[in-house]
């Protein structure tokens, strides 16, 4: 990311709209702010977070590219505006507020689903946006339920396979994990057709990146084994 998205001209433009703060954990005794990563519960490096001017954590970007940073910033601004209007008593903003809350991870899937179910007479475009957001939220919720439980991982993989069959496919950041579990499931159940769908996702996403060349090659080999014939 440092030599990638953080080094692009687009990132330099993006930093005009925010205050970029760099925290480096050094393990140097007495280094100023060394404990800050613990304060924010940083569990791995690198981690990105949006904070308000009081240092309150707002959310993490949905991805590691500048477009994701900008999208999250836009969502935060939209959410702040909607929240202000709702708090001022403006009516009819529930669906848009829910959409913003889902996008920022401020509401978990079960609650979001329950709120959506109560919404009547939604405009088709708003309803479609909410359905996409809910699907992504559902996938994130299922992934969060796995923890370190391998059996649970298999169970969720089977659920994801069923979602693919229903053409319910996430578009958000969780898509990588979604398709990873599909790979496992398809390999275990020797479902070459399903495996190919996941393979296509990874080739589309990472096929141009040299560092993933080996991983993609191994996936293709597994697919060939499952299918029993070579692919191009």
């Amino acid at each position: 990311m440092e030599s990638g998205s953080l080094s692009t001209p687009d990132f330099a433009k993006f930093t005009d709209k925010v205050v970029p703060y760099l925290h480096v954990t050094t393990h140097v005794e007495g280094h100023p702010g060394e404990e800050l990563s613990k304060t924010y519960g940083i569990r791995g490096f690198p981690t990105l977070k949006f904070l308000d001017a009081e240092g309150q954590e707002l959310t993490e970007p949905n991805g590691r590219d500048v477009a994701s940073f900008q999208a999250t910033q836009t969502n935060l601004a939209a959410y702040a505006d909607l929240k202000r209007r709702v708090d001022a008593g403006e009516k009819g903003l529930g669906p848009k507020l829910l959409l913003a809350e889902i996008g920022l991870g401020k509401v978990k899937f079960p609650e979001a689903q329950a709120r959506f179910a109560k919404m009547k007479k939604l405009k088709p475009a708003v309803k479609a946006d909410l359905e996409v957001a809910l699907l992504n939220s559902e996938v994130t919720h299922l992934l969060d339920s796995i923890g370190r439980d391998e059996e649970k991982s298999k169970e969720v993989g089977a659920k994801f396979a069923a979602m693919v069959a229903e053409k319910r496919i996430p578009t958000g950041d969780s898509a990588i994990m979604f398709w990873s579990l599909i790979l496992n499931h398809a390999e275990t159940t020797t479902d070459a057709k399903l495996y190919k769908k996941a393979l296509d996702f990874f080739v589309g996403k990472f096929g141009d990146e040299k560092r993933y060349e080996g991983a993609i090659k191994r996936l293709k080999e597994t697919y060939e084994k499952l299918q029993g014939e070579k692919i191009g």
Partner: peptide
Amino acid sequence: AKKENKLVFAYFTRSY
């Protein structure tokens, strides 16, 4: 951030 009414975009990394 307070002065310019902006959000902080925090990047946590390591050097060790």
